[in-house]
Simulated assay, not measured.
Amino acid sequence: MEQDKHQAYWRANTALIRNLLIVWALVSIVFSILLVEPLNAVRLGGVPLGFWMAQQGSIFVFVALIFIYAVQMDKLDRKHDIDE
């Protein structure tokens, strides 16, 4: 029984990490590298969006992912009754 709880906790933990890494890869590789030319057709504050995503937008997303991970892990810990 305890082993099942432990496995469920780690399954949820790795799923969260996987999903956040997918977002990270999309932003850093797809939006900042592969789609930079089409995104440059759109301007954000006078700056091409592709350039902005590569220089600043991806950093904002990465910081947001850190906070999302912390909040979601706190919820997951409470759900599975894991204390620090």
Rank of each mutant, 00 (worst) to 15 (best):
Leu16Val: 00
Val36Thr: 09
Asp81Arg: 12
Asp83Ala: 12
Pro38Lys: 05
Phe62Pro: 00
Met73Glu: 06
Ile22His: 08
Gly45Pro: 00
Asn13Lys: 11
Asp77Ala: 12
Ala12Tyr: 07
Asn40Val: 11
Tyr9Ala: 03
Leu65Pro: 03
Glu37Gln: 13
Val23Ala: 09
Gln56Arg: 15
Leu44Gln: 03
Gly57Gln: 05
Glu2Leu: 15
Ile33Arg: 11
Val47Leu: 09
Pro48Asp: 02
Asn13Tyr: 14
Met53His: 00
Ile29Trp: 13
Met53Glu: 03
Ile29Met: 05
Ala54Cys: 05
Met53Val: 09
Asp77Asn: 15
Ala15Gln: 11
Leu21Lys: 08
Ala54Val: 01
Ala12Val: 01
Asn19Val: 03
Tyr9Phe: 15
Asn40Ile: 13
Ile59Tyr: 11
Trp10Met: 13
Ile22Asp: 07
Ile66Cys: 10
Thr14Val: 12
Ile33Val: 14
Ile82Ala: 03
Ile68Gly: 01
Ser32Val: 06
Ile66Tyr: 11
Leu49Thr: 06
Val61Ala: 10
Leu34Gln: 11
Asn40His: 11
His6Ile: 12
Ala15Trp: 10
Arg11His: 13
Ile68Ala: 06
Val63Pro: 02
Leu35Val: 03
Glu2Cys: 07
Ala70Arg: 13
Met53Arg: 02
Phe31Ser: 06
Val42Gly: 04
Val36Lys: 07
Phe67Ala: 14
Pro38His: 10
Leu65Asp: 08
Ser58His: 12
Leu16Phe: 00
Val27His: 01
Val42Asn: 01
Ala15Arg: 11
Ala12Asp: 12
Leu21Trp: 11
Ile17Trp: 15
Val47Cys: 04
Leu44Cys: 03
Val47Ser: 06
Trp24Thr: 00
His80Arg: 04
Leu26Gln: 02
Leu34Ile: 15
Thr14Lys: 13
Ala54Trp: 01
Gln7Glu: 14
Val36His: 04
Ile68Phe: 11
Ala54His: 00
Ser58Asp: 08
Asp77Leu: 04
Ala54Asn: 05
Pro48Tyr: 03
Lys75Thr: 04
Ala41Glu: 13
Tyr69Ile: 02
Met1Lys: 14
Gly46Ser: 09
Phe51Thr: 02
Lys79Gln: 13
Asp4His: 09
Gly57Val: 06
Ala12Thr: 09
Val36Glu: 10
Gln72Ala: 11
Glu37Thr: 13
Ile17Gly: 00
Ala8Lys: 08
Leu39Phe: 07
Phe62Ser: 10
Gln55Asn: 14
Val27Gly: 05
Asp4Tyr: 05
Pro38Tyr: 07
Ile29Phe: 10
Gln72Arg: 13
Ala8Asp: 07
Asp4Pro: 01
Leu21Val: 04
Gly57Thr: 00
Leu65Ser: 05
Ile29Asn: 02
Phe51Met: 04
Phe31Cys: 05
Leu65Met: 10
Ala12Gly: 08
Val63Leu: 15
Glu84Phe: 11
Tyr69Met: 02
Ile22Gln: 05
Ala12Phe: 06
Asn13Gly: 01
Phe62Asp: 07
Ile82Met: 12
Ala70Ile: 08
Ile68Arg: 04
Phe67Pro: 02
Trp10Ile: 09
Ala8Cys: 06
Leu44Lys: 02
Gln3Thr: 08
His6Arg: 15
Ala54Lys: 03
Phe51Lys: 01
Asp81Pro: 01
His80Val: 06
Phe62Ile: 02
